[in-house]
Nucleic acid binder design. Structure first.
Lengths: 116, 116
DNA sequence: ATTCGTTATGCACGGCAGGATATAGCGAAG
DNA sequence: CTTCGCTATATCCTGCCGTGCATAACGAAT
């Protein structure tokens, strides 16, 4: 079969019109956890610092307690770390994603019958 | 509670890099079924005819058998109708959407604890 | 034959999300 | 006290998606 058929799934946790959490933010949290800073995480993911900072800002504003705490100061000074809330929320989100993915996969069989 | 918290879900059936089917296309099919033409459906949904036509074109190319068949000629001449495949595929998609929605809703409870 | 409302297609314009860039302030290490 | 890399923020720029508009051919009804 030459063509790839699959279901692309996206789940976003909304707060009013803002995207409180989603796949991009989950990845970003992982990168921050890995690198220890917003800017290094952004570089790592090939996204602009601006965008990464905006994502973090939105998350922190949307949740009762911040998911990332950050401090200015370079090299061995500041940086950014995931809070416990951040880790827990991300975990929860991934669990939801997995559950949805598993369910969606059940429908792929029918799908492939009709899709070219 | 002043702020609205909810999960926004989107599922797309992909064929390679093209979107074979999704929420917008499902709505469009309904509108075509209702109005009997692509252009009337587009007007009805407040979208451009061009976009509606592109959506139909993509659908028809991605599936083994077309979801919409259309004929030129105005007023009482041409127009567009859903094929049986079109109706069935849309139905299947809606069922999948409902199942995913129901599952996602189970996660909303946890979500609201943390969201502001 | 004329009219009307389609299908089908191309092209130019506009809005906007995100990238690039600039600047200021900070904190620890050397 | 200098340097380095970070946070935080503003401004400009650009690429892309979709709308709007124009055109041509068509088919049924009048």
């Amino acid at each position: 079969m030459a063509s790839k058929k699959y279901i692309k799934l996206r789940a976003r946790w909304m707060r009013d019109e803002e995207i409180a959490f989603g796949p991009g933010k989950a990845d970003l949290l992982a990168a921050i956890d890995r690198t220890g800073s917003i800017s290094a995480a952004a570089r790592d993911m090939g996204m602009s610092y601006r965008r990464a900072w905006l994502l973090v800002d939105t998350m922190n504003r949307c949740f009762r307690s911040p998911l990332v705490d950050s401090a200015p100061g370079g090299k061995h000074g500041g940086g950014a770390r995931l809070t416990d809330t951040g880790r827990r929320v991300r975990q929860r989100y991934l669990e939801m994603e997995d559950a949805l993915r598993a369910l969606a996969d059940e429908f792929e069989k029918d799908l492939k019958k009709d899709l070219r």
